[in-house]
């Protein structure tokens, strides 16, 4: 049950488009997974991608940091601009791009290393820390931003894989923010978590909005309504509707969106 007033309050202040996708098509071999998607994602905003399973929302998310490059059969056409630079330009190195566009995955996937090393890995390979003290500071700051510092500060040398599922996911979020990205992509970050851990992660996402533009793929419409300012509804590879979250959930323009939100399709 969404409160209209609350949704209106959450109207976006920032108007600058951080990410602009133009005519994006993705083919997996012969499957046409994403069909001609145009979307503008604002800075310092949480944008939610919703839609039924297999509608292409995760695929599109993976286009934004070129993770689809790692899949041999995937072919991406069209342009995605971040700060007006086309990330599919030949001159762009995807590795450099991924330092700018962090990603959190569906299943918590900490490295089988210590909590400290999990966070320090990104800054180390990008040369963000000049000294051990610098690195310690980055680790602490990131863990604080991941809202997990208090739980792990006494056991930074314990393996990251020994944490609970919710803690692991927050550790992964902390790891993603440690490299100081500008965009944070989250692919169903709460699907493996229980309601309490989900609430913690959602709270965290809302805080991250202060510094990053967050794009979150979710199966849960309640979650999209709770955390996002903008919502995009995908269906069968096309972007059906994109707009203010409040408007999508209360007054959808497309009947497919309405059917999905009211539970008739999906």
């Amino acid at each position: 049950m969404l409160d209209d007033q609350q949704l209106v309050d959450r109207k976006v202040q920032s108007k600058e488009a951080k990410i602009a996708a133009r005519g994006v098509n993705v083919h997996y071999g012969v499957t046409h997974a994403i069909k001609d998607v145009d979307v503008d994602i604002d800075h310092k905003t949480v944008t939610a991608f919703i839609g039924p399973s297999g509608c292409g929302k995760s695929t599109f998310l993976r286009c934004i940091n070129r993770m689809n490059d790692t899949i041999d059969v995937a072919r991406v056409t069209g342009d995605i601009l971040i700060d007006n630079e086309n990330i599919y330009d030949k001159k762009v190195d995807p590795v450099q791009l991924r330092a700018k566009v962090g990603m959190v995955f569906q299943k918590p996937n900490p490295f089988p290393k210590s909590i400290y090393d999990n966070i320090a890995y990104g800054p180390r390979i990008h040369g963000l820390a000049k000294s051990k003290a610098d690195l310690d500071e980055i680790v602490e700051k990131s863990l604080r931003r991941g809202a997990i510092w208090d739980e792990v500060k006494d056991r930074l040398n314990a393996p990251g894989t020994g944490l609970s599922g919710g803690q692991q996911q927050r550790l992964c979020i902390a790891r993603a923010v440690a490299t100081e990205p500008e965009v944070l992509l989250m692919d169903e970050p709460c699907s493996a978590l229980d309601p309490i851990a989900t609430a913690q992660v959602e709270e965290l996402i809302d805080e991250l909005r202060q510094n990053y533009s967050v794009v979150i793929v979710t199966h849960s419409m309640q979650q999209a309504a709770r955390v996002s300012q903008k919502t995009a509804f995908f269906h069968l590879g096309t972007l059906v509707e994109f707009g203010e979250t409040g408007q999508i959930f209360t007054n959808p323009q497309d009947e497919r969106t309405e059917s999905y939100i009211t539970g008739r399709i999906g």
Partner: peptide, 27 residues
């Protein structure tokens, strides 16, 4: 070695070779 480890390394901006030598190979 689970693909999620490779994804994790690539996701924080490691190159293919870094992801292999830092994470996949030790495992």
């Amino acid at each position: 070695v689970p693909p999620s480890i490779r994804d994790a390394a690539l996701g924080v901006g490691a190159s293919k070779m870094q992801s292999v030598f830092h994470h996949v190979l030790p495992l």
